[in-house]
């Protein structure tokens, strides 16, 4: 459904006002808004599962361990176990594999997240919580590599970059299904 770029005239309204019909020609497009350049757009990102838009750069778990200790451990724990303390409340990032079908499921990056691209997108976007978006892309790749290797999803030696990250096989990759509601047994 492509709407052409031309400004088209359309007979918008024909309304009777005090007995006399009038018709007004209004534009299909109002022409508001200004063009955006590719350069302006490059400030923004949102990384889908195929990795489109992943920045250049790379990192591995060795570099990531140091960065994690400095930037993340205070809130997510030395061992990525989370920190529920008042004023902190950082999620547990690893563990919980095999727990999803039990009475006490533990949802973490390791046990629950279906895509590694989401981890990169989210850390670049919103972490560290106290200074979001301050890590460089190399640093983000490194911290992501560290979390994934601590979760035993990748080898400690593997390098994460725009090519390798989308290929990471997350344990719960097939754990999601589309919303089947409405639940038909609940109809009158």
């Amino acid at each position: 459904m492509s709407t052409g770029d031309k400004i088209l005239g359309v007979l918008l309204a024909s309304v009777a006002v005090s007995g006399a019909a009038f018709a007004q020609t209004m534009p299909v497009k109002y022409g508001f808004g200004s063009p955006v350049t590719e350069q302006e757009l490059s400030k923004y990102f949102s990384i889908p599962v195929d990795g489109r838009g992943l920045p250049s750069g790379s990192g591995n778990a060795t570099a990531g361990a140091k960065l994690y200790a400095e930037n993340c451990a205070a809130c997510h724990g030395e061992k990525l176990e989370g920190n529920p303390a008042k004023g902190i409340g950082g999620d547990k990032l690893i563990g919980g594999r095999g727990s999803l079908a039990t009475k006490t499921p533990v949802k973490t990056v390791e046990s629950y997240w279906p895509y590694a691209t989401t981890l990169f997108d989210y850390v670049k976007r919103a972490m560290p919580f106290n200074s979001p978006g301050t890590l460089k892309d190399d640093e983000t790749y490194a911290v992501v590599a560290y979390i994934l290797s601590q979760a035993k999803i990748i080898q400690p030696t593997e390098t994460m970059d725009a090519r390798t990250l989308p290929k990471v096989a997350m344990p719960n990759r097939d754990g999601f299904e589309p919303d089947p509601r409405p639940e038909l047994e609940l109809y009158r």
């Binding site: 923004y44 949102s46 990384i47 889908p48 599962v49 949802k107 990056v109 629950y112 997240w113 279906p114 895509y115 691209t117 989401t118 997108d121 989210y122 919103a126 999601f176």
Partner: peptide, 14 residues
């Protein structure tokens, strides 16, 4: 951002 697929953001997965 208009796309052909959902982005699978943290708030629609985790």
């Amino acid at each position: 951002e208009v796309s052909d697929k959902p982005f699978m953001t943290r708030e629609e997965t985790s």
